[in-house]
Design a protein around this nucleic acid. Structure first.
Lengths: 335, 335
DNA sequence: TTGTAGGCGTTATCAG
DNA sequence: CTGATAACGCCTACAA
């Protein structure tokens, strides 16, 4: 449409063109400081016409800001094919964009925090969001030592950590209660890496439900740290020999693996075995029976977490813990 | 371990402390320019001891660089639950980190490129990667007008666009050939949004295989722009009434939806219907029969794309098109 | 209300 | 081989 812009316009260019000083332009742009309404309009008009945009680098250098926030996640969360991360990103990005912030992704590994260290040392972000909390949370420890504000997506027992998450304890408690009240007493749990706080919280809810209703869970039916298809198949085998009524998969990936094994063994759901899961993603769409699952609005979680972080960056007061809701979707699989 | 660092060390601090000039320190750090070996070591030692890190903002301002690259993706790619994006990110992040680059995520929408526009105007990145190419590629058009180097993950017919991708035409051609040579002649295709070049390329390969072997595909068995579970179910119904031998799902999500419908109809795979897919992700893990699929190494794709982009940023020569390999995984579903 | 001048932390140029 | 000094583009006292 227009001629291509050969050179970026700077504040100085605008000032000279308009015969005013850079200060004046700066004030018009930022809205800070006193400035005549007429001049203000003149500057703003010119800027709009000529498409001037302040240089973020220079702005950042001057007031020590980057207008970036960081998202830190364990690389293995990416390998899992669980849609948690993309959904969360969507929510975060939405809120960040509204405040003119961009999102930098930083991957870490249990043994390698170097990329996170770099982001911090290089001042590449104004604040960080930690996706998922860990029992032994090295990234959080590292951040506590720096002066960069951060918020975790996932609960933490550390009172120094600002955290936002769905209430997984209560979610799993409610799900378990429902199952128990349906008369299902022999419930097996197939859960993942116990270093993730989330998996611990879910188990906590499982126990809590039993306690509240006066039942005693069978510890030998609780399988944790299941981390492969083979392991899941073996666990399912074991479960099948134990006269179990119902299986709770701690996430959709595990549930889908269990489901696969069940189908191989020609078990009918819900007739031969009840099944419940977390997250309700596409991973379970291929199942013939609808699978009962706890639904979390992960986009919403992303949005809320980002809001909390932005408030912290601005130095506003925020609650140390924010718990979000969940929803139980009952389907045929637990009929 | 150490006392907490109250204030960031600047180059000036280092210079003063060592009794040399900033220039000298700069040279020691960057390795550019002549400097005495002894001084160099002295500076480097001091820096290591006191953990000095150059300020990226200042560096960026001085040489007009951000040390960030951008990843642009359609928001709907995030909703799809396909693991394409996370895998690609992993590869990109790996290469970028090696070169001290960080990755900024930018989401766009067919009707809303504002976030991309902001990233460009604000100089937040030194280059961009476009995830997936579109038939009507607004983001690419926008970038061509700017002077920021960019590379697409996905092929494009635009000779001005630097592109990296697996050879989808050939992959689908090979898959189709194999199926045809197995004697399957009535093959249906269930494909997604034709605005994505990738879906067109796959169809292209499908036709090519028929042509090469002298068969004529049944156009009425080709369903494009299938974008919902309901639509997929309807299409599958139609296919079932048409005496079809085999269905090719254009991605794992569509295949899983087709599969679900097939199972609901009690169709046995491969006895009653053969099925083949693309990508081989966890989405199909729940299927009882292993599903034949084309496998792409998406992490590798991410790495290669990022390498090409970094070369472009450095102003090096790069091929305009880079095609990567694929692999056919034959499973029971097409026996 | 507006302008001047100095600073943010680096790199690059040009002397010495 | 090393050191002033001027950019880079914006912000902000402090002056006028």
């Amino acid at each position: 449409m227009q001629e291509q812009e050969v050179k970026k316009l700077t504040m100085d260019d605008v000032a000279k063109e308009l015969g005013v000083s850079k200060t004046t332009v700066s004030r018009a742009v930022s809205g800070k400081g006193r400035i005549g309404e007429e001049t203000r309009q003149r500057v703003l008009d010119y800027i709009a016409q000529h498409n001037y945009k302040p240089n973020v680098m220079a702005k950042g250098l001057a007031n020590n800001r980057t207008y970036n926030i960081g998202m830190v996640l364990q690389a293995d969360l990416l390998s899992s094919d669980l849609p948690f991360f993309p959904k969360a990103l969507k929510g975060i990005s939405e809120v960040a964009a509204k405040e003119e912030y961009d999102v930098i992704m930083t991957l870490v590994d249990t043994n390698d925090l170097s990329r996170l260290a770099r982001v911090i040392e290089n001042h590449k972000v104004d604040g960080l969001i930690l996706m998922r909390t860990l029992q032994d949370d090295k990234p959080a420890e590292m951040l506590k030592k720096s002066d960069i504000p951060f918020v975790t997506m996932g609960l933490s027992d550390d009172p120094q950590v600002f955290q936002v998450d769905n209430d997984h304890v209560d979610a799993c408690r409610e799900l378990t209660s429902i199952l128990l009240l349906k008369g299902l007493r022999k419930i097996a749990v197939v859960s993942g890496d116990t270093n993730y706080v989330i998996n611990r919280k879910r188990l906590e809810g499982f126990y809590k439900a039993h306690e509240e209703l006066g039942y005693t869970p069978d510890e030998s039916l609780i399988f944790t740290d299941v981390d492969s298809e083979l392991f899941a198949a073996r666990v399912t085998d074991t479960i099948l020999m134990r006269n179990v009524n119902c299986i709770i998969g701690a996430d959709d990936l595990l549930t889908s693996l269990v489901l696969k094994k069940l189908e191989e063994e020609n078990m009918m759901i819900p007739e031969d075995m009840r099944l419940a899961s977390f997250h309700d993603s596409q991973l379970l769409k291929a199942a013939r029976a609808g699978i009962t699952a706890i639904k979390f609005n992960t986009e919403e979680l992303g949005r809320e977490t980002c809001k909390v972080l932005l408030r912290r960056i601005r130095g506003e007061e925020v609650p140390q813990v924010t718990k979000l809701a969940y929803e139980v979707a009952m389907r045929e699989s637990t009929k």
